[in-house]
Computed example of a mutant assay.
Amino acid sequence: MVSSRNSNKEVFEAEVLESSVIDEGVLKKILLRAGRVIAQPALEGFELIMDNTTPPQVRLSIMGALTYLIVPFDLIPDFIPASGFSDDLVALTAVISLWQHHITPEIKFRAKSKLDKWFPL
C-alpha cells in the first residue's frame, strides 16, 4: 500500500510540473519592471525549472517562488514604488538558497546570458 501512495505522489508531482508552466514572456515583463537585482535569482530559478535533471520537489518550490513574483498582489503589492518587489526578492533568494547545490555552472551561465540580454550594462 505504501508503494501505491509513493506512485500516486510521483504521478501528482508530474502532473503539477506539466500543468504549471512559467511563461518566459510573462516573467520577462515582470522582471523588466522589477529590475536586475530581482531578475538574477528569478532567472536562475527559471533555468533550474527548465533543466531536466532538477528533482520535482525543487521545481515545485521554485515555481511557487516565481508564481509569488508574478502575482501582483502579495504581502507588499508590486505596484508600490521602491518596496513593492522587496518581499518577492526575499522569497526568491530564500528558495534559491535552499536549492543552491542544484544550480550547475551551465544553469548559472544560461541565467546570466538572459540577464545580460534583458539588462544590458
Rank of each mutant, 00 (worst) to 15 (best):
S113A: 14
L89K: 09
D78P: 01
E106D: 15
S113K: 14
K112C: 00
Q100L: 03
W99H: 14
F79K: 09
G84M: 08
I80M: 13
K112S: 09
P81N: 11
D78I: 00
S83I: 11
I107D: 02
E106W: 02
I96H: 00
A91E: 15
K108Q: 09
V95G: 06
Q100W: 01
I103R: 07
H101E: 13
A82W: 12
G84E: 11
I96P: 03
S97H: 05
K112P: 01
L98I: 11
H101G: 02
S97K: 12
S86R: 14
V90P: 03
W99G: 05
S97N: 11
G84C: 10
P105S: 12
G84V: 07
E106N: 07
S113G: 02
S83M: 12
F79T: 12
K112Q: 13
S86D: 13
E106P: 02
D88E: 05
L89F: 08
L92G: 00
T93A: 00
P77M: 13
A94H: 10
T93H: 00
L92Y: 06
R110W: 02
V95K: 09
D78S: 14
R110T: 07
A94I: 08
E106K: 08
A94V: 09
I96S: 01
L98Q: 14
P77D: 02
H101S: 14
L98N: 13
P77I: 12
V95A: 01
S113R: 14
I103S: 05
P105M: 06
I80V: 14
H101K: 10
K112L: 02
L98P: 05
E106F: 01
P105Q: 08
A94G: 06
E106H: 00
T93S: 03
A111S: 09
L98A: 10
K108E: 10
S113Y: 15
G84D: 13
R110I: 03
K112V: 06
W99N: 05
Q100I: 00
I80Q: 11
W99Q: 03
K108R: 10
I103F: 07
P105E: 07
H101T: 10
L98Y: 08
K112N: 07
A91N: 12
F85Q: 12
A91K: 13
W99Y: 14
H102T: 13
I96M: 15
